[in-house]
Write a protein that binds this DNA or RNA. Structure first.
Length: 201
DNA sequence: GCCAGGATCGTCT
DNA sequence: GACGATCCTGGCG
């Protein structure tokens, strides 16, 4: 039996859509907290909804850097969003982590988020960043160094079915099916519409 | 259960 | 000065 291994830079150095798809079932750890990634979205440089679409700025420069870094930014002045930079160095793209199934450090995450059951603890990008304790200070940090760890899927998540559908909370390019979620469909932010089944992770 | 509205602030025009 | 890759609450059935 082999313990799940950490994803290397090679995992992230390819199509951001493949990366976002294949992240489903992987384990994200941040310090002692984390869980299984069950929902992601991909944002590519030629995509009007991508922060890099309008060109390079101080905020989005991490997107243009090497793959395997964390891109963190503030949404609506309140919520922190955790992304994983993909594609080659210089090609701006990232996968937004939208939800995880909590498995590690649940008590600590619950303390950060207040009185919540497992279901609402990490079921949304803002929620999961708050639960993990991810902040702007982690923008540009390597996902393969502490406090981050990203592990390949454990046995019960290997080859799990993935569904794709339209992305959420954006106003442009809303028709593109670049939201991925686990077909088993627990702990995701929107249990609803996944429209199309795609190949297994 | 569904939907409307408010909170709150960094970033770019 | 406007606008979000969101979340929570409260009102209404």
């Amino acid at each position: 039996l082999s313990r799940p291994r950490a994803l290397g830079e090679g995992f992230f150095a390819r199509s951001v859509h493949e990366v976002a798809h294949d992240l489903i079932g992987c384990t994200l750890l941040f310090g002692g907290c984390g869980g299984v990634i069950v929902e992601t979205e991909s944002y590519d440089r030629d995509d009007p909804a991508c922060h890099a679409f309008g060109g390079r700025t101080p905020r989005n420069e991490v997107l243009f850097g090497p793959p395997g870094l964390a891109y963190v930014y503030i949404s609506y002045g309140i919520h922190r969003m955790l992304n994983m930079v993909a594609e080659s160095d210089g090609h701006a793209a990232a996968a937004l982590i939208r939800a995880i199934e909590p498995t590690a450090g649940v008590a600590e995450m619950r303390r950060r988020r207040g009185d919540h059951g497992l279901g609402g603890l990490c079921s949304g990008p803002g929620k999961l960043a708050q639960a993990l304790g991810v902040g702007l200070e982690h923008n540009g940090a390597s996902l393969s160094r502490a406090p981050f760890r990203v592990l390949e899927p454990a046995a019960d998540w290997r080859d799990t079915a993935v569904v794709a559908g339209p992305r959420i909370g954006i106003t442009r390019a809303t028709e593109l099916p670049w939201r991925f979620s686990a077909a088993r469909n627990r702990f995701v932010s929107r249990p609803r519409p996944p429209t199309a089944a795609v190949a297994a992770a």
